[in-house]
């Protein structure tokens, strides 16, 4: 079976910006059948979690293969747990490598967090302390991940509701130090950035000014829920204007190899998901028109 080449590499010398995947949607069990049925032209690429597909077969897997024939796939994991003290799960990484290689992925990404503690696995993302010790812990682990996968790797900023321990630095310092010392890409989730800016009262612009824009490979746009005294990152609500504004701002600052509308639960009908993809595309096209080559693959 032939596979679509996901990484439309333009410039071998540019590790973080040399790809152009475009604007896409997170592939979920709930939207898979409709995506196969309609193969919407609004989408340039799809994002998929390898954990959902490796070692599987059946209907969902066949849908995935069919979609991978049409759209480049960008792989985004949830299980590396770069923060945990236990050694990296090399069997998992090898399974990822064996699976994704058939789809010529441009890169792999996961979150800057714990997704397991003391070896117990879960599927939520717990924040790390913003400390020098944490940076020194995660940087070599990210390098190991890149080595095992033999792929560029992008780490994602997560949303959080607490700062465990005593923070020694601001969030942007922590994220920046990790990506620069690990020499990896950044997956910037602009919803997570917004949620944290409200929950902890920091300035988004200050954060962006200190981020290494040249390392942004991948953007997530998503929704959240307003609680009594904080914002809860659900990735299950519509994207609100302040989050779109952040995308707009980032697109004005740097080119974006991939922009993914990410909806993890409470998925609306496909046309509503596509409306958010079109919105993201419009923002990117506006940035392009203003002189920033924000994303490739725009239609």
């Amino acid at each position: 079976m032939s596979k679509t080449s996901a990484g439309q590499k333009k410039n071998q010398g540019d590790r973080f910006k040399g790809y152009r995947l475009g604007v896409g949607l997170g592939l979920r069990r709930e939207n898979s059948e409709d995506l196969v049925k309609y193969k919407p032209s609004e989408i340039d690429c799809l994002e998929a979690a390898p954990e959902n597909y490796f070692g599987t077969g059946g209907k969902l897997y066949r849908e995935f293969l069919e979609l991978a024939e049409v759209y480049p796939i960008v792989f985004h994991g949830i299980s590396t747990s770069v923060g945990s003290l236990k050694p990296l799960n090399r069997n998992y990484l090898k399974e990822v490598r064996a699976f994704v290689k058939d789809f010529s992925p441009a890169w792999f990404s996961d979150h800057l967090c714990y997704s397991s503690v003391m070896g117990a696995q879960f599927h939520d993302l717990l924040p790390l302390p913003f400390t020098e010790e944490a940076i020194n812990h995660v940087v070599p682990r990210i390098q190991q991940i890149q080595d095992v996968l033999d792929l560029p790797f992008a780490i994602e900023n997560i949303s959080c509701y607490v700062h465990p321990g005593e923070p020694e630095m601001k969030e942007w310092e922590f994220v920046r130090e990790v990506v620069e010392r690990a020499d990896c890409g950044l997956l910037l989730d602009v919803n997570n950035l917004y949620v944290n800016s409200v929950n902890f009262g920091f300035d988004v612009e200050e954060y962006l000014q200190h981020m290494p824009m040249e390392r942004i490979m991948h953007i997530h746009v998503a929704g959240h829920r307003v609680m009594d005294d904080f914002l809860l990152d659900t990735h299950g609500e519509n994207i609100i204007d302040p989050v779109w504004k952040i995308l707009e701002r980032v697109a004005s600052l740097t080119s974006l190899p991939a922009v993914i509308v990410e909806r993890d639960n409470n998925l609306p009908p496909l046309p509503d998901q596509l409306a958010e993809v079109r919105m993201a595309r419009q923002i990117i096209e506006n940035a392009n028109a203003a002189g920033v080559s924000a994303v490739g693959g725009a239609k």
Partner: peptide, 8 residues
């Protein structure tokens, strides 16, 4: 609580 061990 400040070390990674304590936090995990």
């Amino acid at each position: 609580m400040s070390s990674l061990k304590e936090i995990e």
